[in-house]
Amino acid sequence: MTGLAAIRRAAVLAPHPDDEVLGCGGTMARLAAAGAEVHVVIATRGRPPRYSDAYMDRVMDEARAAHAVLGVHRTHYLDLPAAALDTLPAAEINARIGDCLDVIAPDTLFVPFVGDIHLDHQIAFTSAMVWARPRHAGAPARVLAYETLSETNWYAPGVTPGFQPNLFVDVSDHIEQKIDAFAAFESQAKPFPDERSPEAIRALATLRGATVYCAAAEAFVAIREIWRGR
């Protein structure tokens, strides 16, 4: 099997709740509809005084609702400090993310792009890549980096790594699920022309789709793919 048909268990690493929907919600829905087991790993949780417990409980409830729309098999919460991953030892972050991914044992790993402007995204990417090193047969066969509206395009391409997709997933039949899932994040959704709006999500999917002659698509940077067996 090749392409999406080869994916039977996927893990999507989200630095914060909603990154996974913005980045690959359509692909998650398509995988789930095809019978694949889709896991989401939410790495961080906001903490007082910056974020109240009541606010974060609301956001996590929104995440659960969004994932139900997409058909997510299970959501894993690591509860590392949001907007503060740089205050923790790298070994601790690597261990928390790695232990969770060990349990999931995904054949495919979706990660945030290393060139995202948010430092949490960059650190999550690095920790995921530490875990994904192909040093044993259980390493993921595919590692794909997704783009996150309002993160991937806000850094300084040319000075910092630019998102140059080389893999596209047709999500024409699932773009409405993606938009409905993001709508569940009422605390995060913004009115257009903010990028975190239904209109902007649809516009990006339309642009990525037109790039490869389909109605809607999500774009990725394929970091690694391993073809095992004879």
Results as ranks from 00 to 15, higher is better:
40 V>S: 06
41 V>L: 13
41 V>A: 04
41 V>Y: 11
44 T>D: 15
44 T>W: 10
45 R>K: 15
45 R>T: 12
46 G>N: 02
46 G>C: 13
47 R>E: 13
48 P>D: 10
51 Y>K: 09
52 S>M: 06
53 D>L: 15
53 D>V: 12
53 D>G: 08
54 A>L: 08
54 A>E: 13
55 Y>G: 05
56 M>H: 01
56 M>Q: 12
57 D>V: 07
57 D>G: 01
59 V>F: 00
59 V>W: 00
60 M>G: 02
61 D>Q: 09
62 E>L: 03
62 E>Q: 04
63 A>R: 02
63 A>E: 09
64 R>D: 12
65 A>Y: 09
65 A>E: 15
66 A>L: 06
66 A>K: 04
67 H>T: 13
67 H>C: 15
67 H>Y: 11
67 H>D: 15
67 H>L: 12
68 A>N: 15
71 G>C: 09
72 V>G: 07
72 V>W: 05
72 V>H: 10
72 V>I: 07
73 H>A: 14
74 R>M: 03
74 R>F: 00
75 T>D: 05
75 T>A: 10
76 H>K: 08
76 H>W: 14
77 Y>T: 03
77 Y>S: 10
77 Y>H: 11
78 L>K: 06
78 L>T: 02
79 D>V: 04
80 L>T: 06
81 P>H: 10
81 P>Q: 09
81 P>Y: 05
82 A>C: 07
82 A>F: 07
82 A>L: 03
84 A>I: 00
85 L>W: 10
85 L>A: 06
85 L>P: 00
85 L>D: 04
86 D>Y: 08
87 T>A: 15
88 L>A: 11
89 P>M: 09
90 A>P: 02
90 A>S: 13
91 A>V: 14
92 E>Y: 14
92 E>V: 10
92 E>S: 09
93 I>Q: 11
93 I>K: 07
93 I>L: 15
94 N>E: 15
94 N>Q: 15
95 A>H: 05
96 R>P: 00
96 R>I: 03
96 R>L: 03
97 I>P: 04
98 G>Y: 08
